Amino acid sequence: MAKNKSLLLAGLAAGAYAYFRKKENRDKAMEAFNNTKNKVNSFMEAQKQQDTSNENTGNPNPYHEEDNRMVDEGAMTSVQYYNEEEQVKDDIKTTPDNDAKVGEK
């Protein structure tokens, strides 16, 4: 098994030597390597920027007053909306009796 691996490595090394012996092939390989490196670097930068935008999500700093005020206002807006919807439902439940009396006259 070790003999097969060493033969495989020797074959790969000989093939790489034969390929990179020409300057044209070395230039192509360097260009491909640099393009790949640039793409990986730009991808990593995009990931860093994406991570920093979600820094305070879900766990705001208690001493950051602007952030806390925004969270409080957002919570109150949803509670106010819910309360208004419940009030409308209650009003609808109580008004059918009034409509029946109007029709009797």
Rank of each mutant, 00 (worst) to 15 (best):
M30C: 13
E66K: 07
D27K: 06
P96K: 00
G58F: 00
T57N: 10
I92C: 04
L9V: 14
M70S: 13
A100C: 08
N41H: 10
D67R: 05
K22G: 02
N38P: 04
N83G: 01
N38E: 15
V40G: 01
G74Y: 02
M70D: 10
P96C: 00
T52C: 03
S42A: 14
A18Y: 06
S6Y: 05
H64R: 12
E65P: 02
N68I: 09
N56H: 14
N41E: 14
A100L: 13
D51I: 09
S53Y: 08
N41Q: 15
V102P: 02
D27G: 01
A29W: 03
E84G: 02
M76K: 13
D97R: 09
L8F: 15
A46Q: 11
E73C: 02
E66H: 05
Q50D: 14
A14Q: 10
L9G: 04
A75Q: 13
E86T: 09
N59Q: 14
A75L: 10
N83K: 13
N68M: 14
M1F: 10
N56Q: 11
V71Y: 08
L8C: 12
Q87Y: 08
F33A: 11
K3E: 09
F43A: 15
Y82E: 06
K28F: 05
T57A: 12
L9M: 14
Q87M: 10
G11D: 14
D99N: 12
E24L: 00
V40L: 06
G58Q: 02
G15R: 03
G15V: 01
L8D: 09
P96Y: 04
K39E: 08
N83C: 09
R21S: 10
K23I: 07
A29V: 05
A100Y: 09
N25V: 01
Q47P: 02
K89W: 01
N41S: 15
K23R: 15
A16P: 00
K37E: 05
G74N: 02
N54L: 12
T77I: 12
V40I: 15
D27C: 05
F20H: 09
V40P: 00
G58M: 01
T94E: 11
K39C: 03
N38W: 03
E65Q: 15
Q50K: 14
A16I: 13
G11I: 06
M30R: 14
K48L: 06
